[in-house]
C-alpha cells in the first residue's frame, strides 16, 4: 500500500536555546500513513502529540530527519502547494462567527481560487457537497456563531473536505464536545476515510470511540520516546496499549476498547 505521508528518521521537539540543550520529545520516527485509512495517535499529555502533528503539517520545524508527502519532501513545497496536499483541524473554537456556514467552508477553496477569491460554479458545488457530507446541509446559511460546538467542529471538517486534500490531520478534534458529538465526529471521520478515500490522522484522548473507527494506531511509548505503529487489532493483541501509561494504575480492556482502573 502506498503511503500518503511518511517520515524518515524524524526527531521532533524544540531546538537548543542559549540557556539549554535541545528538547527532544520523540526521536527516530519512521512513520507512515497508508492511503485511505484512519490512523489514531494516542499518548499521554506532554509526550509530544501536538508537536508531532505540527511537524507533520509543516508548521513547526523538525530537529532532524524528514517528512514526505507522497514522494515530496515537505520543505520543498510552497505554502499554497501544501494547502492542496494537507488540511488541518484544530481543537479550539475559532473566530469567523460572522460568516455563514457556506462562507466559512468556502474558505477551504482559497488554495484554488484566484487573487480575489472569486468562487467558480465548481467551487460552489464542492462546498455544497462538503457541507452535506458532514450532515449539516440544513444549516448552510446559518451564522457559524449560532451553531453548537459540535456543529462548529463539523463545519471545520467540511472546510478541510472543501480543501480537497488527500490528507487531513486533526489535533484532538473532539476535546470540548459533548459525548453525542464526540461519537458522531468519530463515526463521520471513519466514514470519510472509507467513502472519500481520505488519509486521516487524528490525535485524541477519547480512546473507545476513536478505537472503534480506527484502521491503524500510532501509540506513543513514553519509556523509549518513540511511536509504535500498526493495524489496530494487531497492536491491541500485542498489548501495545499497556505501554501508554506505564506508571499509572490503569490497564487496557481489549473487549471494551478502553482503559479501566487496575484492580
Amino acid at each position: 500500500m502506498d503511503a500518503a505521508l511518511s517520515t524518515i528518521r524524524l526527531s521532533i521537539g524544540y531546538p537548543a536555546t542559549r540557556s539549554g540543550a535541545p528538547l527532544v520529545l520523540l526521536s527516530d520516527l519512521n512513520l507512515s500513513l497508508p492511503e485511505a485509512s484512519l490512523t489514531v495517535l494516542i499518548g499521554s499529555n506532554g509526550i509530544g502529540k501536538s508537536t508531532l502533528l505540527r511537524t507533520l503539517a509543516g508548521t513547526q520545524r523538525q530537529l532532524t530527519g524528514s517528512v514526505l508527502i507522497g514522494a515530496d519532501r515537505f520543505e520543498t513545497l510552497s505554502v499554497r502547494q501544501r494547502a492542496r496536499r494537507l488540511a488541518l483541524v484544530y481543537t479550539d473554537r475559532t473566530g469567523g462567527g460572522g460568516l455563514t456556514v457556506s462562507e466559512l467552508v468556502a474558505l477551504g477553496r482559497q488554495p484554488y481560487t484566484g487573487f480575489l477569491g472569486r468562487l467558480s460554479d465548481d467551487d460552489r458545488r464542492i462546498v455544497g457537497e462538503a457541507i452535506s457530507s458532514v450532515g449539516i446541509g440544513h444549516k448552510a446559511d446559518a451564522y457559524v456563531a449560532r451553531l453548537s460546538d459540535g456543529e462548529r467542529q463539523k463545519v471545520m471538517i467540511a472546510r478541510a473536505l472543501a480543501q480537497q486534500t488527500p490528507i487531513i490531520i486533526l489535533d484532538e478534534p473532539t476535546s470540548f464536545l459533548d459525548v453525542a458529538s464526540r461519537l458522531e465526529i468519530m463515526r463521520l471521520l471513519g466514514d470519510l476515510a472509507r467513502s472519500q478515500a481520505k488519509t486521516i490522522l487524528l490525535s485524541t484522548h477519547d480512546i473507545a470511540p476513536a478505537l472503534s473507527v480506527a484502521d491503524r494506531l500510532w501509540i506513543a511509548d513514553p519509556v523509549n520516546r518513540t511511536i509504535l505503529q500498526g493495524p489496530r487489532d494487531a497492536l491491541i493483541a500485542d498489548g501495545a496499549m499497556q505501554l501508554l501509561f506505564p506508571d499509572r494504575n490503569i490497564e487496557f480492556d481489549s473487549r471494551a476498547l478502553d482503559f479501566r482502573l487496575s484492580r
Binding site: 488540511a87 484544530y90 473566530g95 466559512l104 474558505l107 480543501q163
Partner: peptide
C-alpha cells in the same frame, strides 16, 4: 478570520 494557524493551512 479563522486565526493565523488556519490561514496558513489554506495557503
Amino acid at each position: 478570520l479563522l486565526g493565523e494557524r488556519y490561514a496558513e493551512n489554506i495557503g
